[in-house]
């Protein structure tokens, strides 16, 4: 494993920890999109079907379990926890997320590395992850006051994407056989979606003012 990949996994982990910290300690999920969280839970469920079939490493197994458990518990908190769910910004979280699941599934059936159940689910999870952030970005844009933790959550998620691209570039040169065009292209699309957010995040951080996205 190279340093970019490890740093990418760690920023991904930090983003989840930041979000859980906000939900668990402040008992608030204000500004967090339930739609995005549901999509992530679906992404991990579809991708980690190989969890009990293919053993890669202890690190790999533990991280998969962490991402599965954290994504489902965030969804649980936002839907069922009696205090947390009251802070959910339902009126602004209106992205029709169900409508992006089906196109991703169709795309996975058409473009995959192998036409088997697990490979199609893997491709589906990659496509879905690429667009899963959209409801969150839409919600951020509609929210007047983006609190620091929510901003940091999205920032760390975006950092994870950038680091994964650097990891692929590194792997391309060091492991020529390792080429997964599906994840690379979808990963680049996903990272581009963050570009706008990153721009405003860095500006607000540089000027030391509260993050606010233009309408």
């Amino acid at each position: 494993m190279n340093l970019f990949r490890l740093a990418g996994d760690m920023t991904h982990l930090v983003s989840v920890v930041v979000l859980l910290l906000k939900i668990h300690t402040i008992k608030s999920c204000a500004g967090v999109s339930l739609k995005t969280q549901e999509l992530y839970a679906l992404v991990f469920a579809a991708r980690y079907l190989d969890l009990f079939v293919h053993f890669v490493s202890l690190y790999n197994t533990v991280m998969k379990l962490v991402f599965l458990a954290s994504s489902f518990s965030i969804v649980w908190y936002m839907r069922k926890h009696k205090i947390v769910r009251r802070t959910y910004d339902r009126e602004h979280d209106t992205f029709r997320h169900h409508f992006i699941v089906l196109p991703c599934l169709v795309l996975a059936l058409l473009i995959n590395e192998r036409f088997t159940f697990r490979e199609v689910m893997w491709a589906f999870s990659i496509y879905l992850e690429a667009v899963a952030i959209l409801p969150q970005l839409v919600l951020l844009q509609r929210t007047r006051n983006i609190d620091n933790l929510t901003g940091q959550y999205v920032f760390f998620l975006g950092a994870y994407r950038v680091l994964y691209i650097l990891n692929w570039i590194y792997r391309y040169f060091t492991e020529p056989h390792f080429v997964h065009w599906i994840s690379w292209i979808a990963g680049i699309v996903q990272t581009v979606l963050y570009a706008d957010f990153f721009y405003y995040y860095i500006i607000s951080w540089k000027n030391n003012v509260k993050l606010e996205l233009p309408a």
Partner: peptide
């Protein structure tokens, strides 16, 4: 047989 063991990323 090329299996999907090469999917070692998260």
């Amino acid at each position: 047989e090329h299996e999907q063991y090469d999917k070692d990323e998260l």
